[in-house]
Design a protein around this nucleic acid. Structure first.
Lengths: 335, 335
DNA sequence: CTGTTAGCGCTTTCAA
DNA sequence: TTGAAAGCGCTAACAG
C-alpha cells in the first residue's frame, strides 16, 4: 500500500499538503490540489485510518452492546443505530454480551482503551469500567442507553414511555371486559420490567382488578413465553387476558394456548409489546404496542454522536412515541 | 490515561519491559514481572490498542457484512461468528449493507485500508475493492464467505449442501403424495437460489413432476412470502405443496393461506428452510430444513482466523450438515 | 533477560 | 498557502 509520503514525493509536495488535500481541501490552491488528487488516484492511495487515529484520538467507531443480537427487537434497533452511524461516517462494532457480566466488562474495556469513540448499550447494566468512566466524566462520557432508561446511570438515553405504554396495553384488556389478567414480564431486575409492571399495576388498580392480577416472570424469549404460559394453564388460572412484555413471549404463549386446545382470542386474549414484523403474521395476529425500533436506534446514534462532538453537553433523554396496534389476539372476554 | 512510559518510569524499567510483561510474560524475570504488574494495577494502565496496531499491523477486528441484520437467520449466524471471534480475542465490526452495492464498497474499503484484519460476508456479492484484493492475493486474502458458496470467488466458505437439502425438502413433499408443487425461491441472481432451485428441479424430475413444478421469486422476507402466495392463489394454481427457500417466506405464505380460508396442511402443505426458532412456534409448526446457523458462523470465523494467521493456506470449503425437521405444516395430499 | 533505538503513517503546530 | 518537524503510544530488532 502506498503511504502519504509516496504520494507526496510523486506529486512533489510535502506530506502535510497531501493530508490537507484530503482533510481540508479548501485551504490548498486548486492547482496543487488537482495535482495531488491525480497522484492519489494513480497510486490508489488510501489513508491509513489507524495511523490517523493515533494522532487524532478519534477512531470513527462506536461500540454497540446487546444481550442477544438474534432477538428481533434488538436487531431492528441495531439497524437504526448502524444506519445513523454509517451516515455520519462511523462504523459499528458489535458486542453480543449474552447477558454475561464478564463479556460486558470485556467490551467496556474497548471504550476505556480508546479503541472506539463511544458506546451505546441496549440493556440496563453498565459495565463497571464504564460506570467509573461516566462517574469521572460527570455524566459527559460518550455513553448512551437505548431502549431503556435507568435514572441512576446519568447517561443519555432514547426510549419510549414504557410505563404509559404498558398501562395502555392493560387498559385495552380491561376495556374488552377482562377481569382476570396475567402479566408475563421480563426479568425482574430490569428497570424496564419495573416500568412496565408499574404501568400494568396502575391500570389494574384503576380498574379495581389489582387483586386478580397475576405476575409471571419470563426472559423475553419464545421459550420462556411458552413455558410460563404452560405453567399458568396448569394452575387452572382464571386469567382470560395475558399481557406479555414482548412479542416473542406472546407468540410463545399463543403456541401454549393451542397446545391446551384453547382458542385465542375466544378463550384467552393476548397482548404483546414491540410490534416486531412477525407480530402481524402469526395466528391470530398480535395486538401489541408498537415501538419505533429503528428510530430508537437512530436517535441513540444521534445522541452519542452529539456527545462525542460536544463533550460538555449534559445527558439528554429522548422519548419516542408508541402506539397500540389492535389485531386479532385481543377479543372480548367471554361472559 | 497512563501510557507505557508512565508505567516504565514508575517501575524503574524500560517501556520495552512493560510491553513484554503484557505480551510475553514468560520471557521476563518473575520478580520484575510482579513489580511491573503492580504498577500497572496501581496506575490503572491499559495499553492503547491503536498504537499497538500501527506497529503490528494487526487490528484485532474482523468485519462482517450482511444484507440485513434483522433477518433472524443472519442474526444467528452473526452470533456464531461473534462468539468465535471474541473467543479468539477479536472484535466484530458490523456492516449492514442493505443489499446496496455502494455500502458494500464502503465496507470493502475498511479491509483495503487495513482498518480490520479480515472480512466475512454473508451474501453472494463481493465488493469490487475486495474482489481486486482477492485477485492480487491469489485467493489468499483474509476473506470468507458464509452461508453461500460462489465458485468464481476463490475464497474460503462455510455452508451446507443447499442443493441436497432442497432436494430433500422436495422429496418430502412428493413422498406425501403431492404432485403439484410450487417453489417460492430467493432472488434469482443469487447462487444460493440457483443451488436450491437445482435441487428442487432434480427432485421434481425424479418424481416425474417437472411439468407441474411452478416457480415464484421472492426475496426472503415475510412480506414477499405473503405476497407471492396471494398471487399464486389468485391464479387458482393446483399446487398443494409449497417449498419456500426460507422460513420467513414460509410463515408469510401460511398467513396468506389463512386469509384465503385454506388450511395448512389439509389443503396446502408448506415446507420451509433454515429452522429459525420461530418455525416451531407458528401454527402449524413448520416442516423445514435445519441449518446449524451458529455453527456456520463459528466455522466461518475459524476459517477467517486461520487465513489471517497463515496467509499462504489455500481457500478451504467447510460443508456443514443439515437435517429435515418434520412438523405439522406438511401433510398428505388430499385425494 | 533487559534496554536502546528506530520507526509504524499520519496530523498539526509553527515558521517561512 | 506550504513545508519542516515533532510526535501520538506502542513494538521489535538489535545490542549489551
Amino acid at each position: 500500500m502506498a503511504t502519504i509520503r509516496d504520494v507526496a514525493r510523486e506529486a512533489g509536495v510535502s506530506p502535510a499538503t497531501v493530508s490537507r488535500v484530503l482533510a481540508r481541501p479548501e485551504v490548498v490552491t486548486p492547482d496543487l490540489r488537482e495535482q495531488v488528487l491525480q497522484v492519489i488516484e494513480r497510486l490508489g492511495y488510501a489513508p491509513h485510518p489507524i495511523a490517523a487515529s493515533l494522532k487524532t484520538r478519534r477512531t470513527g467507531k462506536i461500540l454497540v452492546t446487546v444481550p442477544d443480537i438474534s432477538n428481533p427487537f434488538f436487531a431492528k434497533v441495531i439497524r437504526g443505530i448502524e444506519g445513523g452511524a454509517v451516515a455520519a461516517g462511523y462504523a459499528v462494532v458489535l458486542g453480543d454480551t449474552r447477558d454475561l457480566p464478564e463479556r460486558e466488562e470485556l467490551f467496556g474495556l474497548m471504550l476505556k482503551r480508546g479503541e472506539v469513540d463511544g458506546l451505546i448499550f441496549l440493556g440496563h447494566r453498565l459495565p463497571k469500567v464504564i460506570a467509573a468512566l461516566v462517574q469521572e466524566a460527570g455524566g459527559q462520557a460518550p455513553v448512551v442507553n437505548a431502549c431503556e432508561f435507568n435514572s441512576e446511570l446519568s447517561v443519555s438515553s432514547a426510549h419510549i414511555d414504557n410505563r404509559a405504554a404498558a398501562k395502555a396495553a392493560m387498559d385495552a384488556l380491561y376495556a374488552a371486559g377482562h377481569r382476570h389478567v396475567a402479566v408475563l414480564s421480563g426479568p425482574a431486575q430490569s428497570p424496564l420490567t419495573r416500568e412496565r409492571l408499574g404501568g400494568a399495576r396502575a391500570s389494574a388498580q384503576r380498574h379495581g382488578a389489582l387483586a386478580e392480577l397475576q405476575l409471571l416472570e419470563g426472559d423475553f424469549s419464545l421459550a420462556s413465553g411458552h413455558a410460563r404460559m404452560h405453567e399458568l394453564l396448569q394452575t387452572q388460572s382464571k386469567a382470560t387476558g395475558i399481557f406479555c412484555h414482548n412479542d416473542e413471549m406472546a407468540i410463545g404463549a399463543l403456541a401454549a394456548l393451542r397446545e391446551w386446545g384453547l382458542s385465542c382470542p375466544d378463550d384467552v386474549s393476548v397482548v404483546g409489546f414491540d410490534d416486531i414484523e412477525m407480530a402481524s403474521y402469526v395466528n391470530p395476529a398480535l395486538t401489541t404496542i408498537r415501538q419505533p425500533m429503528e428510530q430508537i436506534g437512530q436517535e441513540a446514534a444521534q445522541l452519542l454522536l452529539d456527545t462525542i462532538r460536544n463533550r460538555d453537553a449534559p445527558p439528554r433523554r429522548v422519548r419516542l412515541s408508541w402506539e397500540l396496534i389492535a389485531r386479532g389476539s385481543l377479543g372480548r372476554a367471554a361472559k
